[in-house]
Design a protein around this nucleic acid. Structure first.
Lengths: 191, 191
DNA sequence: GTCTATACCCCGATAGAC
DNA sequence: GTCTATCGGGGTATAGAC
């Protein structure tokens, strides 16, 4: 670890880790200061609004860039292909996203209007982009939108059940069966 | 409100409400005492383990009885029928369940081994029961199980997106389109 | 910019009166 | 059974030295 050049960034980083592990309410500024190797007074130098100011910065950084996961899927050749590749991609690299989404869900009641609006925009962008990818394989835009919601909900719900609620520790997670079953269903609904 | 006959039940009830609104960590026993119209000393009379003891009782009460929602669906005549009726049923009366599930998700890191195991059992029972209902309409038990996971994940994820993350305040929720799109996909995968 | 020292409050918990 | 009174500790936040 190099000599500290930017304490402010360190604070946001370690505060983010603590918030996600323990929730905002359960994390004290003394903990944050200790983890960032400074004192609470230093926190107040960078964040005049105190703990809430830190939270706002952490939320900014935590907003998931879901749309990025869809870029590599622009060349899919069928609905079945799309679902399978999206499922496998998310399964490989989606734990970080799930973590952050879980956290945003936990803190949702603490979020201000502006942050809620940003989160909604992010979620809706993903659904629209997903509908764009689905559109070539279905009859209408309305079908594409509805199919996108189903796909989104299923993947999201599966992640919440098996990762966030840790069902994967209780039963062997049916990852492949799930993805292929979903792909069969969605794929067979195309034109 | 009648004269208090059972302070203990009152404590569990109001503590549950506070925990679900604010999370366990953010709720103090002084708040609980005030809401239950008693002092903190009285809490310790009923709950020797203090705040954690109260949490355990609240969790007991909060465990969602998901399986109950499936009882009225024993006479479905097709997969399509099953999905539509389950979707509509949950949409009518499922907010309370979603609330409690959201809360269990928030508190999951605080849960002990025993509570986690009970939660997992509850979730898995629902999936098995769902697979039982699906089985007559598909080729194998394995298909029924996989379909049950897809259905469960989709409904669960949809609820989390639109209710817990309050997407319903940002866009008109596509409830009917969603249910019928899901029913078409799952229904067309039967035998 | 970062620290020491401290103010003031609410936290969870308990002893002992009634 | 329920209360009053209180303890020790950790919470957020700040003033002022360096």
């Amino acid at each position: 670890m190099a000599a500290r050049t930017d304490l402010r960034d360190d604070i946001i980083r370690v505060a983010g880790e603590l918030f996600m592990q323990q929730s905002y309410a359960a994390t004290s500024i003394k903990q944050i200061a200790k983890a960032a190797h400074c004192t609470t007074a230093a926190l107040y130098y960078y964040f005049e609004e105190g703990k809430e100011g830190i939270l706002r910065q952490v939320i900014d950084v935590a907003m998931p860039n879901l749309v990025g996961y869809l870029e590599p899927l622009r060349d899919v050749t069928s609905l079945h292909d799309l679902v399978v590749r999206l499922g496998l991609t998310l399964w490989e690299s989606g734990e970080a996203i799930l973590q952050r989404t879980r956290w945003l869900m936990v803190e949702f009641p603490n979020l201000g209007e502006a942050e809620r609006a940003r989160l909604h925009t992010t979620l809706l962008q993903f659904q629209k982009r997903l509908a764009d990818l689905i559109q070539p394989f279905v009859a209408s835009r309305q079908d594409a939108e509805a199919t996108a919601w189903v796909l989104y909900s299923a993947i999201f719900g599966y992640g919440q059940l098996f990762v966030t609620l840790d069902l994967q520790s209780a039963v062997e997670p049916p990852n492949e069966q799930f993805v292929y079953a979903l792909a069969d269903m969605i794929g067979s609904s195309g034109k």
